Every structure is written in structure tokens, then in C-alpha cells.
Measured scan of single mutants.
Amino acid sequence: GAPPLPPYSAGGREVTMKKGDILTLLNSTNKDWWKVEVNDRQGFVPAAYVKKLDSGTGKELVLALYDYQEK
């Protein structure tokens, strides 16, 4: 199953993602919540729920390892 959710501390809205989604990583300075862009929406997802990909394009991409439903 998915890892436990860290307390929400990102101070911005969250976004929903599905397992297998490829998201653009915008900011990973917060260790628990990373800012991503998905379907032209920006928001935060739990860092433990995604994995960085080596895209080779200069853009940082992450793979959704679990479904996440915004609150």
C-alpha cells in the first residue's frame, strides 16, 4: 500500500494524480510535499508518492507510484 501521508505543510493547493502518471516537477525544496504540474494544473503531491525520472530533456519529471486524491 501507499506510505503514510506526511502532515500537510506545503501551503498551496494539492493536485490529484493516478498511479503511472508522468508529472513535471516544479519544486522539490519541501522534503514532504513536491510541487508538480499535471494537465496544466499546478499543485502539491506527497514526495513519497512519486519517483524522479531521468528525462534527458532538462525538464524534471516524476512518476506517480500511487493514486493521490487532493483533499
Rank of each mutant, 00 (worst) to 15 (best):
G1I: 07
G1S: 15
G1P: 14
G1R: 05
A2R: 11
A2C: 10
P3I: 06
P3H: 05
P3T: 04
P4S: 10
P4C: 06
P4I: 09
P4A: 11
L5K: 09
L5P: 08
P6I: 03
P6H: 02
P6Q: 03
P6G: 03
P6N: 03
P6E: 03
P7H: 13
P7C: 10
P7R: 02
Y8G: 15
Y8C: 10
S9I: 11
A10D: 06
G11Y: 03
R13C: 10
E14M: 13
E14V: 11
V15P: 02
T16A: 13
T16V: 05
T16F: 09
M17C: 05
M17H: 01
K18V: 11
K19S: 07
G20M: 02
G20P: 00
G20S: 02
G20C: 03
D21H: 04
D21N: 07
D21F: 04
I22Q: 04
I22Y: 05
I22C: 04
I22H: 04
L23I: 06
L23A: 09
L23E: 00
L23R: 01
T24Q: 07
T24M: 12
L25E: 00
L25F: 03
L25M: 04
L25C: 05
L26G: 01
L26Y: 03
N27S: 13
N27Y: 05
N27A: 11
S28W: 10
S28D: 15
S28P: 06
T29D: 15
T29M: 13
K31R: 14
K31D: 15
K31Q: 14
D32Y: 14
D32R: 05
D32L: 10
W33I: 01
W33Y: 04
W33M: 02
W34A: 02
W34V: 04
K35D: 04
V36G: 00
V36R: 00
E37S: 09
E37Q: 13
E37D: 08
V38P: 00
V38E: 04
N39G: 15
N39Q: 11
N39A: 13
D40K: 12
D40E: 12
R41V: 14
R41S: 11
Q42F: 08
Q42R: 11
Q42T: 13
Q42E: 12
G43C: 04
G43A: 05
F44D: 02
F44I: 05
F44P: 01
P46T: 02
P46L: 02
A47K: 04
A47F: 01
A47C: 04
A48I: 10
A48N: 15
Y49V: 02
Y49G: 02
Y49S: 04
V50S: 01
K51I: 11
K51F: 09
K51N: 05
K52E: 07
K52L: 14
K52G: 05
K52F: 09
K52S: 07
L53A: 04
L53T: 05
L53H: 07
D54G: 14
G56W: 09
G56R: 03
G56S: 13
T57P: 14
G58L: 12
G58V: 10
K59Y: 10
K59C: 08
K59W: 08
E60P: 10
E60D: 12
L61G: 03
L61Q: 14
L61R: 08
L61H: 07
V62S: 02
V62W: 05
V62C: 08
L63W: 05
A64C: 07
A64K: 01
L65F: 03
L65E: 04
L65W: 03
Y66V: 04
Y66F: 15
Y66C: 04
D67P: 06
D67H: 04
D67Y: 04
D67K: 04
Y68Q: 01
E70G: 14
E70H: 13
E70C: 05
K71V: 14
K71T: 15
K71F: 13
